[in-house]
């Protein structure tokens, strides 16, 4: 059972959280976006092995936030409220 730090509620059990995607996957607007760019936004992922920065939502408080962790050893290095870089997914 992992503990994730919600920036609003503090450390909580993993089962209260939902993975929202990789941070920085910005959504391109418009009907003119190329098919490749749109598929990149919808589907393509870095899926890094090791250090990763992701968007999570703490379902019990409803807040989305960014979290840095390691996808191999599962150590969490920190979390923060959504910054500009993570918006516009």
């Amino acid at each position: 059972m992992q503990l994730f730090p919600c920036p609003f509620c503090g450390p909580r059990e993993e089962s209260e959280f939902h993975h929202g995607g990789e941070a920085g996957n910005l959504r391109p607007d418009g009907a003119e976006v190329t098919a490749e760019r749109w598929a990149g936004y919808l589907h393509m992922r870095d899926n890094p092995k090791g250090a990763t920065r992701e968007i999570w939502v703490h379902m019990t408080c409803g807040e989305f936030f960014a979290m840095s962790r390691d996808s191999v050893n599962h150590k969490v290095s920190g979390s923060s409220v959504l910054g500009e870089a993570e918006h516009g997914r």
Partner: peptide, 9 residues
Amino acid sequence: ALDRIPSYG
């Protein structure tokens, strides 16, 4: 079901 936490562990 999957562990819905992306992982290589």
